[in-house]
Amino acid sequence: MDRITLAIVDDHPMILEGLKSLFSGDVDRYQLFFFTKGEALLDFIQENRVDVVLLDIVLNDGSGLDFCKLIKQKSKDTVLLGISNQEERSIIFRFLENGGNGYILKNADANEIVCCVEKAVAGELALSRKVQEIMLTPMEAPPQLPRLTKREQQVLQAISNGLTSADIAEKLFISVITVETHRRNLLQKFTAKNMFELVKIATENRLI
C-alpha cells in the first residue's frame, strides 16, 4: 500500500495526542502532521501534498466547515474527514456539502476511526456508526401553519406594526371587541403565549 500523508487539525492537546498515538504505530502506512489552527494547515498544503485531513469542526481560528471548503479549493484531491463532538445533523450535512468525505464523532473507538480513514482513502463516504444513526433517523415534520382568514391576516399585520386594538378597530372599521376576539383566536391558532411570540412566529414563517 502507498504511504498516506495524514494531517490532523485539532486545538485540544489531549485529542491530538490520542490521534497521534493511534496512527503513529504504523509508520509504513502513515506520515503524520499536526496542526492546532486551520490557517496553519492552509499554509502547509500550499507547498505540500496532503492525502487525508482529520479536521475538527470547532477551532480557535475559525470553523472547520469553512476550512473544509477552503482546503478543497486549494487541494481538490485531499480527503477531508470531520472529527467532532458536534452531533447536529445540519452541521454534518454542511460539512459534506462543503466537500467533506466523511464525519467521525470523537467518541468513536480507535478501530472505527482508522476504518473511516481507510474507507475515505478508498473513495467511500466514511461515517462513524453514531453518525450513520443520526443521518438515518427520520426528521420530524415541520409543524403545519394555521390557515388565516383575510381579516385575521389584516389584524396580524397591524399587530406587527405596533397598533393598539383601538387603532386596529379604527383602521379596519370594526369594533374593539372584534379586534380582541381576533387577537385571542390568533394566539390560539399559533399556540403563542403572548403577542410578542405571535409576531415572532409569524415573522419567522414569513406570514408578515
Rank of each mutant, 00 (worst) to 15 (best):
I15H: 09
V50K: 02
V79D: 01
N98G: 05
R3T: 09
F196M: 09
L148F: 10
A126G: 10
R147K: 15
Q86M: 15
V9G: 08
P138K: 00
F23N: 01
K76P: 15
V131R: 04
M14Q: 14
L148Y: 08
E152L: 11
R49H: 08
R147G: 14
D43N: 09
R147Y: 14
C116S: 15
E112I: 06
E118M: 08
V179D: 01
K69C: 09
V155S: 01
V176C: 06
N194W: 03
S84L: 06
E140M: 06
L80S: 04
M1W: 04
L198S: 09
N185I: 04
R147C: 07
T78W: 01
K171G: 04
A169G: 05
I8M: 09
K74E: 05
S175L: 03
V27T: 12
V155W: 00
I177N: 13
F44C: 04
L55I: 09
I71W: 06
T178Q: 14
E197T: 06
S160M: 07
V117A: 02
D56Q: 06
Q153Y: 13
V50N: 02
E118H: 07
N111M: 12
E133M: 06
Y30E: 00
E47M: 08
L148W: 03
R206G: 14
G62W: 00
E87K: 12
V58P: 04
F93N: 12
V79S: 07
N60A: 14
L163C: 08
R206A: 15
D167E: 09
G102Y: 00
K76Q: 10
L127G: 03
L70Y: 11
S84C: 11
N111L: 12
L136V: 05
I177Q: 13
N48W: 00
K37W: 11
Q154C: 08
E140Q: 05
L80G: 09
M1K: 05
S21E: 10
E47L: 08
Q153V: 14
C115R: 14
D77K: 11
D28A: 11
T5D: 04
A192D: 00
T137D: 02
L163R: 05
D66C: 04
F173Q: 11
S175N: 05
N60K: 15
F33P: 03
T203I: 11
A122C: 07
T203R: 15
N85A: 14
F44S: 03
R206K: 15
D61W: 06
L172I: 06
V199N: 12
F173C: 13
I8P: 05
D66S: 09
L187V: 00
T137Y: 06
L55T: 11
M195G: 13
